[in-house]
Amino acid sequence: MTARAALLLFADGRLPAGGYAHSGGLEESVRTGRVRDAQSLESFLEGRARTVGLVLAAFAARSCRAARDPDPLPELEVLDAELDARTPSPAQRETSRQLGRQLHRLLTGMAHHPLLERLPRAPHQPLVLGAACGLYGLRPLDAALAALHESVTGPAVAAVRLMSIDPFRTHAALARIAPSLDRLAERALEHCDGSPHDMPAAAAPLLDVVAEVHATRSERLFAS
């Protein structure tokens, strides 16, 4: 039997791991005026999926595969450094590690997981997500989908608080880009083997800049 239901658990926005406090750069992008209506929001989400989403998905998928190895820690350590090198924004590195730590706290609070308990203190979020998917019997493709799903639903849900848009439109945008998430998840899967140095590194320079600008704001709704 193939595990499926656990995927819904990890992809659920209500997963109590603190993700709701983040907008994935949308708050500052709205402030700059680059995102201002349903169309530009969809473009933002699509761009995020193809860049950050693809990278996170590839790392989650590979971590999921690694979690089934007898000793996954050395590979997870390499993946952690590779993801650092793909995240030029210190604010984004910090956010990713904070979210990773929160997910880790949740998972170790839910059950005893010998592998997770041996992870360093604040691993990047997709590594924890991928490893968790592996531990709950999910496949690398599932981990990739969960990472991609999360990379766009967080900002989409945040959008209703940040701009004048109703939740029907945000979810219509999510539904329209769903097929591209499937394609990106398949692409992410191609990197479960081979040199980790060749893994996807799709850059989003404007997201990097807005992450740093956002970190300097004294008034903000979302932490990132």
Binding site: G25, S29, R34, V35, S40, S43, F44, E46, G47, R48, R50, T51, V52, A81, E82, D84, A85, R86, P88, P196, H197, M199, P200, A201, A202, A203, A204, P205, L206, L207
Partner: peptide
């Protein structure tokens, strides 16, 4: 050990969205 890894696509695809270049 990886120091910087970036694949930047400009002019098409994600390059035109508000996360990559957006009119710059």
């Amino acid at each position: 050990r990886a120091l910087l890894c970036q694949d930047l696509e400009l002019g098409t695809g994600a390059g035109r969205t508000p996360v990559v270049a957006h009119g710059h």
